[in-house]
Amino acid sequence: MNAGTKFAIGAVLIVGSVGYLMASGVKQTGQYFLTPSELSQKIAVDPSFYNVGMKVGARVVPGSVARDVAAQTLRFQVTDGSARYAVVYRGLPPDTFNDSVEVVVEGRLHKDGIIYATNVLAKCGSRYEAVPKA
């Protein structure tokens, strides 16, 4: 076997493992990114979607935010104009969170219709027109 063939085998191994790692990575860690309406449609069609990790991108309903600082719990509602979900988040919200921002809520929808968030990311609209952070 000449060096070129051996190298080709090595290359195939590397490319194959990169491909395998990517495929399994997507399978194990990929999460649906939904709007509240998409979430309600999905849950209507497929009830097994309860308690599955996902992300919801929506706007916080103004006036819906209730902070319990002592218990470090944040309750608020999110909407995309049609569907609306309540969110419970135990943890510290980001500095940019307030009652009118766009948020990405990462968590699970429980049978009680509440999204229990493990993470809340807030976008700060145009005012965060920052230079790239790397």
């Binding site: 990517m22 399994s24 990575g25 997507v26 860690t29 990929g30 999460q31 649906y32 990114f33 939904l34």
Partner: peptide, 14 residues
């Protein structure tokens, strides 16, 4: 037709 995101776990795993 649906958005699926991958986050830090994906990048770390790979």
């Amino acid at each position: 037709g649906t958005k699926v995101t991958v986050g830090p776990p994906f990048f770390n795993q790979v």
